[in-house]
Design a protein around this nucleic acid. Sequence first.
DNA 1: GGCATTGGTTTTATTATGCAACCTGTTTTT
DNA 2: AAAAACAGGTTGCATAATAAAACCAATGCC
Lengths: 151, 151
Amino acid sequence: MVRRKSLKGDYCPSARSLDAIGDWWSLLIVRDAFDGLTRFNEFQKSLGIAKNILSDRLRTLVARGILKAVPAGDGSHQEYRLTEKGRDLFPVMVALRQWGEQHLFLPGEKHSKLVERDTGKTIRLEVRTEDGRPVGPDDAVILRVPEPEAP
Amino acid sequence: MVRRKSLKGDYCPSARSLDAIGDWWSLLIVRDAFDGLTRFNEFQKSLGIAKNILSDRLRTLVARGILKAVPAGDGSHQEYRLTEKGRDLFPVMVALRQWGEQHLFLPGEKHSKLVERDTGKTIRLEVRTEDGRPVGPDDAVILRVPEPEAP
DNA sequence: GGCATTGGTTTTATTATGCAACCTGTTTTT
DNA sequence: AAAAACAGGTTGCATAATAAAACCAATGCC
C-alpha cells in the first residue's frame, strides 16, 4: 500500500474526520461503545474482529481521544469508554443508521431501531439552518477558507 | 488479508451503511461529488488518489447506486453524478463535518464552512425525536430486532 | 497527420488485515 | 492445591488491498 495518504492537514473538516475515524472497524467499535460495550472481549465477540486488529484500533481510538481506557473497579481488566469527543459522534452514527434504514433494507425486512428511552419515540436527524429551517443538499454551499497568500 | 468481513446481512443499519460506504476513499469521493465535481480527472486531482483505485471506487459507487455515470453532452467523457440515494448521504456528510469542526481544529485554525446558499446562514444538524425534542446519546436506546426463532 | 488530453488498465512493490498460535495474569472448577 | 478456563493481549505467517508508475485506446485540437 505504500502508506495511505493522510488528510490531517486538509482544511475540510469532513476530510479530517474521515482521517480520524474513517477506517472500517473504528466506527463499528464506536457504535458498539454507544451500545454499552466496554470490554475487549465484548467488542471482539460482537464484531468478529481479529484480536490484533481490535487491539490496534482500540489503541488508536484511545490515542485520538475518542475512547478512554479506565481500569475497572476490581482491577482485573480495562474498560473502554467513550470520551466526550467520542460521544459527540452520536449524530454521525444516527446519520449512518438513518441512511441505512432508508436504502439498505428490503421493503419488508426488519432492522433494529433507535428510539428515545423514556417515550419509545423514533429518533431522527435533520439538517437545519441556525434559525431552524430545514435544508437539503442543493441549498447548501461550502465556503472555502481563503488560501494563505504569499506576500 | 483473507477477505474482509462483510456486514451486509447485519440487522444494524449503521453496520450495513459502513459496509456500503465505509472505506476510506468512497466518502471522500461523495464529498467531492456534493461539491460539484463530476469528472474522473477532477476527482483524481482533488483527492490525489491513485487512478486505479479511483477507477475501482467509482465503479463500486455506481454499482451500489450512489453515483450514476452519465455520458456527457459531447460524448467525449463521462460524468459521475450523485443519485437520489447518494444525495441522501447529505446528513452523514454534515455530521462528519460538524464533528471535525468541533474536535479536529485548533482554536484559531480556519476551516471551510457549510452555509445556506441564499442567506449565508450556518447549517447544522440536530438529533431529535419525531415530535421535535432534541435528544442526546444517553436518551437513546437501540431496539433490537427479534431473532428469528427456530420452530 | 501528429500530439496532447481524458479516462482508464496493467504491473509491480509495499502495507494492512486476518488467522492461528502463543503468552501472561486472574478467576473458577475440581 | 492443581487444573482448567478466561481476559487481554502479542507474534508470525499468508494473503488481500493499496499506491505509484508505466502503458494504452479514444477522442479533440492544430
